[in-house]
């Protein structure tokens, strides 16, 4: 058999690497980078997506900082980030710990149960929760009526409760996914660490906080970043359930951007240029939050 020379091996490696990397890189450039770069260009235009493009310099950016809807929407996004992320992570970690360490007979069933929302379409989820919150026939009001504590509140129709009502929906959707991720991460922690700690008399709570959490800090930080991305970029639930209302109480920045770009039922005018400017704002916001998360939560990797 012919022995491969060093050069041949090097060429083969290079070709393999190129074949492996180039197609996804090309797809990334074509479908992600190029549209994003175009968005930067669009953000300086007065353009409805159909007609003539008109360069207007920084006008869209000036408008952006004067637009009260943007400020209102960002406030709601930040409320969601500040609530959905910690609640989701805490519930996911606790559930994952229970399923990994308690070894319930029904573990597999619970895993499927928690993951279930992830296989449902967004529309179905939104409709389910719309019915839960329905002011007349809703499940939540029915339960409250049975308990004798009200039961006639219009949860999504009141500016006081509309935004808060969407938080359980987000948490319900995301928890299952992170339970599975965290369960796998916990399973990878060597049992010997727990065993020696147990011999030292550690309690279950200490085991969770002193061993499990620190050893999972990397995956938790990644989970936090993905949750942040989802919460800020997502608007589907608001689009279906509330349209950003009532009175702008559930307006989020991506929904506003979408409506400006594609119009609404009652106003079919389009502002691709200004919507792209809002897209730029979202991009900057996401980068900033990512930097904050990286700063606050250590990147130290743990080996075991």
């Amino acid at each position: 058999m012919k022995t491969l020379t060093r050069t041949n091996i090097h060429i083969q490696k290079t070709v393999f690497l190129l074949l492996a990397v180039l197609p996804p890189f090309a797809a990334y450039v074509l479908f992600t980078l190029y549209p994003n770069v175009l968005s930067i260009y669009y953000s300086f235009l007065d353009w409805n997506g159909i007609g003539e493009k008109k360069y207007i310099g920084l006008d869209n950016y000036i408008r952006l900082f004067q637009d009260p809807v943007v400020l209102n929407a960002l406030k709601h996004n930040l409320i969601l980030v500040a609530t959905v992320i910690p609640i989701t992570l805490i519930i996911s970690l606790v559930l994952a710990d229970l399923l990994v360490n308690r070894q319930y007979k029904e573990n597999k069933f619970y895993k499927v149960l928690f993951f279930f929302p992830n296989v449902l379409s967004l529309v179905v989820i939104a409709l389910i929760w719309s019915f839960i919150y329905d002011g007349t026939f809703g499940l939540l009001n029915s339960v409250l009526r049975v308990l004798g504590i009200g039961g006639d509140h219009n949860w999504l129709g009141s500016p006081k409760t509309a935004l808060a009502s969407t938080i359980p929906l987000y948490v319900w959707c995301y928890v299952g996914f992170y339970v599975v991720i965290f369960m796998n991460a916990m399973s990878a922690i060597p049992k010997t660490i727990y065993e020696s700690a147990t011999l030292d008399g550690i309690t279950s709570f200490q085991r969770f906080t002193k061993i499990t959490l620190p050893l999972m800090s990397g995956i938790i930080r990644v989970g936090m970043i993905f949750l942040m991305l989802n919460v800020i970029k997502g608007f589907e639930y608001m689009f279906i359930m509330t349209k950003g209302g009532p009175g702008g109480a559930t307006e989020v920045i991506s929904l506003y951007m979408f409506n400006l770009a594609f119009g609404t039922e009652s106003l079919s005018q389009h502002f691709y240029g200004y919507a792209s400017t809002i897209g730029m704002l979202i991009f900057v916001l996401l980068v900033l939050l990512k930097v904050v998360i990286d700063k606050v939560f250590s990147k130290d990797s743990v080996e075991f």
Binding site: P246, G248, T264, Q269
Partner: peptide, 25 residues
């Protein structure tokens, strides 16, 4: 009229119409 301000004006009133009509605003 075709401008972001026109859309913003109508959006502001329409977004709040339900609250006005139900006596909340």
């Amino acid at each position: 009229l075709n401008s972001p301000d026109f859309v913003a004006a109508n959006k502001h009133v329409q977004d709040n119409t339900a609250l006005i009509l139900t006596g909340q605003k």
